Amino acid sequence: PVYLSVKADNSMFIGNDPVTDETMITALNALTEGKKDTTIFFRADKTVDYETLMKVMDTLHQAGYLKIGLVG
């Protein structure tokens, strides 16, 4: 499974590897070998604001990742 996490300080990680807004999709493409039907499990600290969550989800959708599971 692929886990994308947003921490309380808005830092992002794919698994244990830090990513930025600019590198997130490139890292996901490498990890999933470009398979856009891969489910991305998205988790965020409860203090992360809604705007940040939606920005990340919008970026995922624009890149073609449509299977996003929200996890606690």
Rank of each mutant, 00 (worst) to 15 (best):
P1W: 10
P1K: 10
P1N: 08
P1M: 06
Y3N: 04
L4T: 01
S5I: 15
S5A: 07
K7G: 09
K7R: 11
A8T: 06
D9Y: 06
D9L: 04
D9Q: 06
D9P: 10
N10Q: 10
N10C: 09
N10V: 03
S11D: 05
S11R: 12
F13P: 00
I14V: 13
N16Y: 08
N16H: 12
D17E: 13
D17C: 13
P18L: 12
V19C: 06
V19H: 03
T20F: 05
T20K: 04
T20N: 10
T20I: 04
T20Y: 05
D21E: 14
E22W: 05
E22G: 08
T23E: 09
M24N: 00
M24P: 01
I25T: 03
I25F: 03
I25W: 03
T26M: 10
T26D: 14
A27L: 13
A27S: 09
A27N: 06
A27P: 01
L28V: 04
L28P: 00
N29T: 08
L31T: 05
L31P: 00
T32M: 06
T32D: 02
T32I: 05
T32G: 02
E33S: 11
G34P: 02
G34A: 04
G34K: 04
K35S: 08
K35D: 13
K36A: 04
K36I: 06
D37M: 06
D37G: 10
T38L: 08
T38V: 14
T38Y: 07
T39Q: 15
T39E: 13
I40Q: 00
I40C: 01
I40N: 00
I40E: 01
F41C: 14
F41T: 04
F42I: 15
F42C: 08
F42H: 00
F42E: 00
F42R: 00
R43W: 15
R43I: 15
A44D: 02
K46I: 11
K46R: 09
K46P: 15
T47L: 13
T47I: 06
V48S: 04
V48N: 03
V48P: 02
D49V: 09
Y50F: 12
Y50T: 10
Y50R: 12
Y50P: 13
Y50W: 13
Y50H: 12
E51R: 12
E51G: 11
T52C: 06
T52Y: 14
L53P: 00
L53E: 02
M54C: 11
M54W: 10
K55P: 02
K55I: 06
V56M: 08
M57L: 13
M57Y: 07
M57N: 02
M57G: 01
D58Y: 12
D58P: 01
D58W: 11
T59M: 15
T59K: 15
T59L: 15
T59H: 09
L60R: 00
L60P: 00
H61M: 13
H61D: 03
Q62R: 14
Q62F: 07
Q62E: 12
Q62S: 11
A63Q: 04
G64I: 01
G64C: 04
Y65V: 01
L66M: 13
L66N: 11
K67C: 11
I68Y: 04
I68H: 03
I68V: 13
G69W: 15
L70V: 10
L70E: 06
V71N: 07
V71S: 10
V71H: 08
V71Q: 09
G72Q: 12
G72W: 06
